[in-house]
Simulated scan of single mutants.
Amino acid sequence: MSHPHRRPAETELLAPERHGDADAEAGVLDFAVNVQPGPPGFVRTALAARLDQLAAYPSRTDERRAVGAAAARHGRRPEEVLLLDGAAEGFELLARLAPRHVALIEPSFTEPGRVLRATGARISTVVLPAPWHLDAELVPADADLVVLGNPTNPTSVLHPAEQIRRLCRPGRLVVVDEAFADLTADPVTGRREPESLAAALPDGVIVIRSLTKTFGLAGLRIGYLLAAPAVIARLSAGRRHWPLGTLALAGLTACLSEEGDRYTAALAERLAVDRGRLLAALAETDIEVCAPPHGPYVLIRVPDGLGVKAALRDRGLGVRSCANFTGLSTDHLRVAVRSEAETATLIAGLRDVLTSTPGPS
């Protein structure tokens, strides 16, 4: 299948540092970025209440309150929590562990690989075959740092917690990126976060969590990680003063409040319905869904994915090319789960593109 539409340079789409926000242009209906619209009203109120205090440095009280909220959310001790200037900072801090051999479970979010390659450590990419079930036997035995996502971005695969535990061994740290775990649920029982390790936190596991996706706060940069106190000490040694500002601390505390928990639970339920609607529409359109999705995004594969992406852009629709994810191809596209009306617009665009006859180039 060939499309004459203008498309971004293939070298740009293959760049490891490229993120979906590059496709979320003004005036384009955004299916490329997985951030929810927001922030919700109660978070806005919490942020607005602190605007008059921005002349002062962030306080220890605010920091303790945010740490306590994260600890309480997962039943952890405060000394097992490290607040982050966005979850991406958690990947940067991993360099302080001075790993010798890093195993990256792929395909997955590109940021950990980008920052860990800069450390000079040996890097092994463990590319799981589709549909990307985790297999601990594929990981090199001498890897002292293993990084994976759960649910994985962009495949939306949710690995069983028991399979992740099998990665653990003496002398190894396992980093689990749970950026979208708060929106997962068991499809049968409805139990929230069924495969998260945040509450169990096995020895040798670091869990990195983001709040910006669920609460529509990508511009604020807030997250946290959970790990053993000794690991926290290694990650935070020599860290700058005031790594999170007053608004970040206030936003983090609000997101992790009881009201924030209720909001997340309701959002997870709604997204499950919206995702089911999207999957049904994709099936009716004979578009391949690459794996059963568990996050607020779905990975699809279409012939000439780059051409389809460009043609959708011409129709005012932005989707994420997955050409720069290890183990995926230029035919893979990621689409965010949106409302019923927005999904209908996307499906109409896809049908139009996939059935149109290319004109002269």
Rank of each mutant, 00 (worst) to 15 (best):
P4E: 03
R6I: 07
R6D: 07
R7H: 01
R7F: 00
E12I: 02
L14G: 12
D21H: 06
D21W: 05
D23Q: 15
A24Q: 03
G27Q: 07
L29Y: 05
D30T: 04
V35C: 04
G38S: 01
P39A: 05
V43R: 01
V43F: 00
A46N: 01
A48Q: 10
A49F: 03
D52M: 09
D62Q: 14
E63C: 02
E63Q: 08
R64E: 12
R64N: 04
A69D: 08
A71P: 00
R73G: 01
E80S: 14
V81L: 10
G86L: 14
A87S: 15
E89P: 15
G90F: 12
A95E: 12
L97E: 06
P99K: 07
R100E: 13
F109R: 12
E111V: 13
V115Q: 08
R117K: 13
R117D: 07
G120N: 06
S124Q: 09
V127I: 09
D135L: 10
N150H: 11
R165N: 02
L167S: 09
L167N: 10
P170F: 02
R172Y: 00
R172D: 02
L173H: 07
L173R: 07
D177G: 11
A179Q: 07
A181G: 14
D182E: 15
L201H: 12
P202W: 09
G204T: 05
V205I: 11
I206H: 12
V207F: 11
T214K: 03
I222F: 00
I222K: 06
Y224D: 09
L226V: 13
P229K: 09
A233E: 14
R234G: 06
S236L: 13
R240D: 13
T246S: 15
G251T: 06
T253K: 05
E258I: 08
E259S: 02
D261G: 12
A265W: 14
A268T: 12
R270G: 08
R270S: 13
L271A: 03
V273H: 03
R277E: 10
R277P: 01
A280W: 09
L282W: 03
E284D: 14
E284A: 14
P293M: 03
P296E: 00
P296M: 03
L299I: 05
L312I: 06
D314N: 10
G316R: 11
N324T: 12
N324P: 15
T326V: 15
T330L: 09
A336E: 03
V337R: 08
E340N: 00
A341K: 04
T345Q: 13
G349D: 14
D352H: 11
P358V: 05
G359P: 00
S361N: 08
